[in-house]
């Protein structure tokens, strides 16, 4: 079990796993979103290679209103 932060909130994963697998577990489909891990952007093409480790901070953002 590893502890991570998903969008600022504590969360867990059974083990370290690739970002694309974790996103599916969290319910993110092929939607309109982008991801940063520990405040570093992860291109969509890199999801399978991006391993989520204990203590990682994952931010997943989508379009919203803005000025």
């Amino acid at each position: 079990m590893i502890n991570i932060f998903l969008n600022g909130e504590s969360n867990t994963l059974n083990k370290s796993e690739a970002l694309d697998i974790a996103l599916t577990e969290w319910g993110y489909q092929d939607g309109c979103y982008a991801v940063a891990v520990n405040e570093t952007f992860v291109p969509r093409s890199q999801y399978p290679q991006q391993l989520i480790n204990d203590g990682d901070r994952i931010d997943i953002v989508s379009p919203l209103e803005g000025g």
Binding site: G27, Y28, G31, C32, D59, P63, G66
Partner: peptide, 21 residues
């Protein structure tokens, strides 16, 4: 102008807003 914000899948992930834009 638009922004990016954290959203959970259960909230639609900004899809409806983005569709309007």
């Amino acid at each position: 102008t638009v922004s990016l914000r954290r959203q959970n899948p259960s909230e639609g992930g900004g899809t409806s807003f983005w569709q309007l834009i």
